[in-house]
């Protein structure tokens, strides 16, 4: 509670400073608006802004779910065929030299301007941290636990359910936390490239119109999406990772 109060106090101080300079200095106002102007802007356009927020959140959230499921499926294949992991891991790592953001226009061409291209972008950008952390978690399982399962002749299904997933959970969660925020970045970047609605589109429009109110409102809403996504992962961790916390 004490910690929460400290952080709240820090945020209040920052908002007060922002308000002070935003209302006294026109240059500052031109760059970053001011809290009261942002609130005014939000109250005047809340329906459209909330719709954009919900859209971006949906894209990021679905992208994260797809990335998580896909990495789990790939890992399950690797559990059945360990050589596949040795084969695929260098490819995955090498693929990261491509700045994934440059794929955004490709996805727009492939899937069109709607939600699908943004979900695909969010999924692609958030896949790698989940997968690599899962691999790390799997490889960190003590050797003697693997040997014990071998001696007891544990079937692969048992090992996946009782050993691999649970013991890799701290690493899976670490990957999910990174990917939760990356998914938001992926969705927003894809919206920059072309979208009917979304926080990314609003940010893009604000830069063209030189509209600091819209830009700051969108930045705050994007941050809120990131916080909510991170919060969802934390809730999941509380549910499934209580043993290591």
């Amino acid at each position: 509670m004490k910690k929460f109060l400290k952080y709240t106090f820090l945020v209040v101080i920052l908002v007060v400073i922002w308000q002070y300079f935003g209302s006294t200095d026109s240059t500052v106002r031109l760059y970053i608006s001011s809290p009261t102007l942002v609130v005014d802007y939000f109250m005047g356009n809340y329906a459209g802004l909330l719709e954009a927020t919900l859209t971006t959140f949906t894209e990021a959230f679905l992208g994260l779910i797809i990335a998580t499921l896909f990495s789990f499926i790939v890992m399950i294949i690797c559990f059945y065929r360990p050589k596949f992991l040795e084969f695929i891991l260098p490819i995955m790592v090498t693929s990261q030299v491509i700045p994934i953001i440059v794929l955004a226009p490709f996805f727009i061409i492939l899937f069109g301007i709607g939600l699908t291209s943004k979900i695909a972008m969010a999924a692609v950008i958030s896949f790698f941290p989940i997968f690599v952390n899962f691999v790390h978690g799997y490889k960190s399982i003590p050797k003697n636990i693997h040997e014990l399962m071998f001696i007891y002749r544990a079937p692969i299904i048992f090992k996946i359910k009782h050993i691999y997933f649970p013991l890799a959970m701290p690493s899976i969660m670490a990957g999910l936390k990174i990917s939760a925020t990356l998914a938001v970045i992926g969705a927003i970047v894809a919206e920059f490239t072309g979208a009917k609605i979304g926080i990314g589109k609003n940010l893009f429009v604000s830069s063209i119109r030189l509209d600091p109110d819209l830009m700051m409102t969108s930045l705050i809403l994007a941050s809120l999406i990131g916080i909510v996504m991170y919060g969802i992962v934390k809730l999941l961790e509380k549910q499934y990772g209580s043993w290591y916390q």
Partner: peptide, 29 residues
Amino acid sequence: GKLSFMFQQPALLPNYSVKENIEIPLKIK
């Protein structure tokens, strides 16, 4: 399945309780 092995390190599953850890060989079988 008539063999058991005890390592230098106990090789317990950290996410399972004492009872669940002891039950592992039975669960497998």
